[in-house]
């Protein structure tokens, strides 16, 4: 129990620091920034309670916000992601999987996991871009940001997932 918590806690800080110190400075073509920190939310066990999922999501987003001077933006979108994650998992997980599996390429298979990860990233990225710009003045730029950010983040998630094995 404590070991699981410590493991999650260290993942939490590693992802926040990687996000703050490296990925926040990445801007492919001036638009696409990877938001890899949501990897933590995607990887929690499938039977984790919705309450702790929400609290982890909120604190993760808040920590990233503090480092990037965007109070509330990442907190709101990560909370949203934590909220929709159980629905997404139900939608994309193979029917015969156990109750307490940890979502991943290994446990779900490549295609289902990537579908799950990319839709989750899309939800998070749309909320994020909407909150950062806070206007519909340039819909094409926003769309470009959402799509490019989603692609890049999904790619990063795939990279970490493969590298971990």
């Amino acid at each position: 129990m404590i070991i699981t918590f410590l493991k999650r806690f260290s993942w939490f800080w590693v992802l926040v620091l990687v996000q703050a110190l490296i990925l926040n400075n990445v801007h492919f073509f001036g638009y696409a920034t990877p938001f890899l920190y949501i990897y933590l939310l995607l990887k929690f066990d499938a039977n984790m309670s919705r309450y702790s999922l929400l609290l982890w999501g909120f604190s993760l987003g808040l920590a990233v916000d503090v480092f990037s001077n965007t109070p509330g933006v990442n907190a709101a979108s990560a909370t949203l992601l934590a909220f929709v994650r159980p629905f997404l998992l139900k939608l994309f997980a193979p029917r015969d999987s156990a109750d307490d599996f940890s979502p991943g390429i290994h446990s779900m298979g490549l295609a289902p996991f990537m579908r799950y990860a990319s839709v989750a990233t899309l939800v998070h990225q749309s909320a994020l871009v909407l909150l950062v710009t806070f206007s519909f003045a340039q819909p094409s730029v926003m769309l470009l940001k959402v799509v490019s950010g989603t692609l890049l983040t999904t790619l990063c998630i795939w990279g970490v997932e493969v590298a971990k094995k």
Binding site: L54, L55, G57, F58, G61, L62, D65, P71, G72, V73, A75, A76, T79, L80, L131
Partner: peptide
């Protein structure tokens, strides 16, 4: 939690 985030925002 969403209300808290928006208050910060």
């Amino acid at each position: 939690l969403e209300v808290a985030s928006f208050m910060l925002l």
